[in-house]
Design a protein around this nucleic acid. Structure first.
Lengths: 110, 110
DNA sequence: AGTTCATATTAACTTCCTTTCATATGAATA
DNA sequence: TATTCATATGAAAGGAAGTTAATATGAACT
């Protein structure tokens, strides 16, 4: 601890936390996670829903795969993605709720 | 909605969410929030606890202030900072818990 | 009023992230 | 086995975020 009895977040936790939040921070990845929380879909479906370059979507899916937030499996010609870590949704939802509060609910000091 | 009955996160929510997560993603800011959740402190206290440049801490405090996550008040020569949005801690804690799971608990597929 | 002390600010530099474009891969079908 | 179709990858470019160093600010005490 330290002279003021204040607890710091330890290095490993900090790194892991950073990793998660960096992944979630990106709006494309957030949408992808939100989409996949509703239904497993093909890459081309996601491309269509978000109306973005296939290449961009693939890059982001690859990031999400790398950290095991989603997983892929082939079916025929397409590859389907699904959420691989439902727990992550807790954070997403908590944050969306917060955003909603700030936007509508009302700021704490108003 | 759309042809697949999938809900997307709307633009405003996305922006707000991004803002929050960007703020939380930074390890220095995370530590600061975690510290201030335990006790209101002077800038110099935070500098000492984290052992980082005073300038750097001030920069980050200014960011946090800008988004009203913390507030400042003078007392004598020093300026004390305190959490201004305890709700944000829900997200921080949710994320720390998640990090903890990943690190110790155990990944979902192991 | 002048000095000191704590904090804030500006500017420059560096590093990291995102996006795009071009191309590769590789399973599926002909 | 040659071709096609869906997805993945590499490299480059542009922009955003983090850090540092130097300096400014301004309240508090003399």
């Amino acid at each position: 601890m330290n002279s003021k009895n204040i607890k710091l977040i330890d290095q490993k936790m900090l790194l892991e936390t950073q990793k998660i939040l960096s992944l979630l921070k990106n709006p494309v990845r957030l949408q992808i996670l939100h989409i996949l929380s509703q239904k497993s879909l093909r890459v081309s479906d996601i491309v269509e829903l978000l109306n973005l370059d296939q290449s961009l979507i693939s890059h982001h899916l690859s990031e999400l795969r790398k950290y095991q937030l989603v997983s892929a499996k082939r079916d025929g010609k397409s590859i389907y993605y699904e959420l691989d870590d439902p727990h992550i949704l807790d954070i997403v939802n908590e944050t969306l709720e917060h955003a909603n509060h700030v936007l509508h609910g009302k700021k704490h000091d108003e």
